[in-house]
C-alpha cells in the first residue's frame, strides 16, 4: 500500500465484468477514500453482487476490461487469498456451509492467514469473547460447524464476527442486511460502525435503505444495469425509498 494518505483505498475504473459470457458490469467507476463508507444501492440483477465478487476475485467472474486498484495497486493478478491478506474482506450474501469445520478452528486459521503469523491462544480467546459480546452471539457458537444448519441471521452474525476478527482495510458488505430482523440489524450495524476509522473504508451493498438508518454512508451510489447512474449523499437513499428506482430508469433511458 502507498504511504500517501490521500491514496484512495479503492479505485474502480471503467470496469467490465462478465459471468458465463454475459456482461454484467458495463463500465463501472467508483472511488472510495480512506475513512469513507459508501453505499451501493440497486435492484436485483443490477450488478451489485458482481461488483463485490470482482473486487474479491471470485474466479467465476471475468474482468474483460477496466481496472480495480486497491491501496494504489492493481489487484487484477492477485489471487483471492492474497487480496484477503492485503486487507480486503467480503461479507457474503450467501455464505457456504463447511461441515466438520468448527467456527473456532475456522476463525483461528483465517486470523493466522491474514495476519501472517499465529496469534497466541491467550490473545485469541479474549478477542473472540469481546467480539461475541458485541454481536450478541453465545459462546456455544464456537464449536458449531461453520454455517452448517445456521439460520439466516446466524450466518450474517458469523460474517460480522469474521470481519471484526480480521479488521479489514476494505470491508464489502454484500446485502448483509437482507433477511435480518430489527434486533439483528442493529447488532450488525453496531459491528460495522465499530470498525469505521480514518484508515478503513466500507462498501455497503444493499437493496433497501433500511440499514442506512443505522450505518450512515458518506456517499450513496445507484447501480443500474451494470453502471453507476447516480451518486449523492445520504439523502439519495431516502429519495430512493420514496420514489423507488423507476425515476432513475427513466432518466437513464
Amino acid at each position: 500500500m502507498s504511504d500517501e494518505t490521500n491514496t484512495p483505498v479503492l479505485e474502480v475504473s471503467d470496469l467490465h465484468v462478465s459471468v458465463g459470457g454475459k456482461e454484467i458490469l458495463k463500465g463501472l467507476n467508483l472511488t472510495v477514500g480512506a475513512g469513507e463508507t459508501h453505499a451501493i444501492m440497486g435492484r436485483n440483477g443490477s450488478g451489485k453482487s458482481t461488483l463485490s465478487a470482482a473486487i474479491m476475485g471470485n474466479p467465476r467472474y471475468e474482468i474483460t476490461s477496466g481496472t480495480i486498484v486497491y491501496g494504489g495497486q492493481d489487484i487484477a493478478e492477485l489471487a483471492v487469498h492474497e487480496r484477503a491478506r492485503a486487507g480486503v474482506f467480503l461479507s457474503f450474501q450467501y455464505p457456504v456451509a463447511l461441515p466438520g469445520v468448527s467456527v473456532v478452528n475456522f476463525l483461528r486459521q483465517a486470523v493466522r492467514a491474514v495476519r501472517g503469523d499465529d496469534v497466541p491462544i491467550k490473545a485469541f480467546r479474549p478477542l473472540v469473547k469481546e467480539n461475541l459480546k458485541i454481536l450478541d452471539i453465545p459462546q456455544t457458537f464456537m464449536t458449531r460447524y461453520v454455517n452448517d444448519g445456521f439460520s439466516g441471521g446466524e450466518k450474517k452474525r458469523l460474517e460480522m464476527l469474521q470481519m471484526l476478527m480480521l479488521q479489514p482495510t476494505l470491508a464489502i458488505l454484500d446485502e448483509t442486511d437482507s433477511g435480518l430482523d430489527i434486533d439483528a440489524l442493529k447488532v450488525v450495524s453496531t459491528a460495522i460502525n465499530g470498525l469505521r476509522s480514518e484508515k478503513r473504508a466500507q462498501l455497503v451493498i444493499t437493496h433497501y435503505q433500511r440499514i442506512l438508518q443505522y450505518v450512515t454512508p458518506d456517499h450513496v451510489h445507484v447501480l443500474l444495469d451494470g453502471q453507476i447512474v447516480k451518486s449523492g449523499g445520504p439523502d439519495l437513499a431516502h429519495e430512493l425509498e420514496k420514489h423507488g428506482y423507476e425515476w432513475l430508469e427513466k432518466d437513464a433511458a
Partner: peptide, 26 residues
C-alpha cells in the same frame, strides 16, 4: 464455492482444501 469462501478469508488453496477434507472426516 467452499474454496472461494475459505480463500476470501486468507487461506491458500492447499490450506483451504485441507480444511475441507479434515472437516469431511471429522
Amino acid at each position: 464455492e467452499q474454496l472461494y469462501y475459505l480463500m476470501s478469508r486468507g487461506l491458500d488453496q492447499d490450506a483451504a482444501t485441507t480444511l475441507i477434507v479434515n472437516g469431511f472426516i471429522e
